[in-house]
Amino acid sequence: MSAKKANGEAVPQKIEEKLYQNRYLVDAGRPHVRIREYAEPSAELRRLVNVCPAGCYAINEQGKVEVMPDGCMECGTCRVLTAESGDIEWNYPRGGYGVSFKFG
C-alpha cells in the first residue's frame, strides 16, 4: 500500500496499525456494507476512499471501488454520503457482531 492518498497527502500512520488496536467480531461471509453494481464509479463512491475513517474503500487495478468492511467502525459516514446516489447498501451488522469498543 502506498503512503499517499489520492489527493497526494502523506499518511503518517497506516490505518491498519490504528485498527489493529480495536476489537472486532467479524460476521464472516456476511458483509454489512456492500457496493451496488455499477459500470463507472460515481464521484460519491470515489470520495469514500478518502473519507472513510477506517479506510474500508479502495480502488482496485481495474479502477473499480471496492469495500472491505472488516475494520468498519459503523460510523455511517459512507451511508450518509451516498444516501442520494444510492451507491451502497448499508446495514448494521447482526446483533453482537462488528466493532466492540473497550473505551469508546
Binding site: K18, Q21, P53, C75, T77, F101, F103
Partner: peptide, 8 residues
C-alpha cells in the same frame, strides 16, 4: 495508543 474510534 489503545483504541481508535469514529462516530458521527
Amino acid at each position: 495508543v489503545k483504541e481508535y474510534a469514529a462516530h458521527l
